[in-house]
Design a protein around this nucleic acid. Structure first.
Lengths: 112, 112
DNA sequence: TGCGGCACTTCACTTGGTAAAGTGGTTGGG
DNA sequence: CCCAACCACTTTACCAAGTGAAGTGCCGCA
């Protein structure tokens, strides 16, 4: 997926532009969470995609996977500092969406 | 591609997470540009993808397409205000990339 | 007159994401 | 005691997005 491995913007885009990535991060910002909890709050995500995304994010050091030593063994995911460094982007996107994408999906001019 | 049409973050992600989108925007922030110039500066993009992306971005009101009345008719693309509203995200991504993605693509721990 | 540039489009192919079902381990209920 | 359900995922088959290479129609220039 990489475009220019030298360019910080490209490298970041390669990570965060995979579908659901930012939503997973936003969800984990609410607090550590288990697989099935994420599955429930991210309505529409397939377990396969969630699984892939969590593994990628773990490899990138953006989320931390913790297998609790209980029985049955639950698994919890949490954001790392690196992961929290993605939050400003999400905030920018929220602002952009609220300011420029209100209601209609960019149909015609709202001139009047 | 849409996930939750009510959520500003999702709606924004649906636009900016298409491949090359942010790079096109960044390129146009350098000044208005023509199709083949974009093709040359965005090394690796296929003309099909560039064409699709420009059309989508035009529909969203993020870029402006201007057919100059010359012969042969050149076409120029430029950012709108809405398009410039995406620049903070790109800046965040650059920062993130520089701070957290230096050099290695997240191989192993840099603990020491 | 034919060569090259511009602004794309078309086509065949690969990759990424989805939906639905399945797996293996672990309780809890009848 | 055993069947159902829950958890944390995989597997499989499919569809959509992006790629690479080639092609199109228009033009100007030598």
């Amino acid at each position: 997926m990489a475009v220019d491995p030298e360019c910080p913007v490209c490298k970041t885009a390669d990570i965060v532009c995979a579908k659901w990535t930012l939503l997973v991060v936003r969800e984990l910002d609410e607090g550590r969470s288990r697989f099935c909890e994420l599955e429930r709050s991210l309505t529409g995500i397939s377990p396969r995609t969630l699984s892939l995304r969590l593994r990628e994010l773990e490899q990138e050091g953006i989320v931390e996977r913790q297998q609790l030593p209980e029985l049955p063994p639950r698994v919890e995911y949490a954001l790392t500092d690196k992961g929290r460094a993605l939050l400003p982007m999400i905030e920018d996107m929220r602002c952009f969406g609220e300011r420029w994408l209100e209601g209609e999906p960019a149909v015609s001019a709202t001139v009047a």
